[in-house]
């Protein structure tokens, strides 16, 4: 029973990682950059939802939609202001900019909401406990796993069937050729950031529903772990992000339960290192041939 409990908790945590990892993997696949600030967009999304619920008295669904809208806008703004001027620059410069952006968001949150942790209010997501046989689990767990499945299916349909989705795949394959074919590369990259950031808002709400402590650094650790998950699954691959996220969540929870609570994080990062050494393209990633 304890094993099953852990497994379900792991799946739930993994689902959150998976949704965050989608944002990383899409941006990496299309813009070829590591958006370090993604974890902090999650945090901003969670804060907006928190404000909606606590201060503005919005119904939960509306609060989540507002958070998604704000994050979408934020993601597009970040891309336009900070990343677009560096489209041709070396990856080192882009990465340092992204780290700066991550710090900027954290410090803005610190100025607006203060350093004291806020406790995320209860909503329909996490206000009941479900019993199934001998198992009892928070409704947040179930909601998280279900949301993950829905997001996965919708995103896959979007990528494979819509015009914008096809454009994204084109840009990811070969940016120059896509541009020659009349695809607006900048607009496609903006759209990717928009989708990734909207997903980040959802992830933020789910994260804070399961672990209701909200502070300016809330997003950074899950962000880094989700990036680990994206690499684990094969960066650039959407099913890979899902698989990597879920596996990583399960590994973390089992590591904490059976090895040591303190070493849970270390274990997750050890997984990343082993994966990169053994199979740097990740579980579902495609090998990239080097061109001179």
């Amino acid at each position: 029973m304890i094993f099953l409990d852990n497994l379900i908790n792991g799946l739930s945590l993994g689902s959150i990682y998976a949704i965050i990892a989608l944002g990383y993997t899409m941006v990496y696949g299309i813009a070829k950059m590591l958006n370090f600030a993604h974890g902090d967009v999650i945090m901003i999304g969670a804060y907006i939802a928190f404000c909606g619920l606590q201060y503005w008295g919005l119904p939960p669904v509306v609060a989540i939609l507002v958070a998604m809208a704000v994050c979408t806008l934020l993601g597009v703004t970040i891309e336009g202001l900070a990343y677009r001027p560096l489209r041709q620059a070396a990856s080192l410069a882009v990465l340092i900019t992204a780290i700066g952006m991550s710090y900027l968001l954290q410090n803005i949150a610190l100025m607006i909401w203060g350093a004291n942790p806020k406790s995320f209010p209860r909503t329909f997501i996490n206000n009941s406990i479900l019993r199934l046989g001998g198992l009892s689990m928070s409704s947040a767990t179930v909601f998280t796993i279900l949301t993950n499945i829905v997001v996965m299916v919708v995103l896959n349909l979007f990528i494979s069937h819509t015009k914008l989705g096809k454009a994204m795949r084109c840009v990811s394959e070969d940016r120059g050729a896509a541009e020659l074919m009349g695809i607006k590369v900048n607009r496609t990259i903006s759209a990717t950031f928009a989708i990734g950031s909207a997903l980040a808002a959802i992830a933020g709400v789910l994260l804070c529903s399961s672990y209701p402590i909200l502070q300016p650094t809330t997003g950074s650790m899950p962000g880094i772990k989700a990036f680990t998950a994206a690499v684990f699954g094969g960066i650039g691959s959407i099913p890979g992000a899902m698989l990597g996220g879920v596996l990583l969540g399960v590994i973390e929870i089992f590591g904490k339960a059976y090895i040591s609570t303190e070493l849970g994080d270390a274990l997750v990062f050890a997984v990343l290192i082993v994966v990169l050494l053994v199979k740097p393209t990740g579980l579902l990633g495609k090998p990239v041939r080097e061109k001179v």
Binding site: A89, I99, G100, L104, I108
Partner: peptide, 19 residues
């Protein structure tokens, strides 16, 4: 830290943007 973050971004954009 806020100023540091802005400095990081601005230095990178100013030294790397071709325009």
């Amino acid at each position: 830290m806020l100023v540091y973050a802005v400095v990081l971004i601005l230095v990178m954009i100013f030294t790397n943007n071709p325009t």
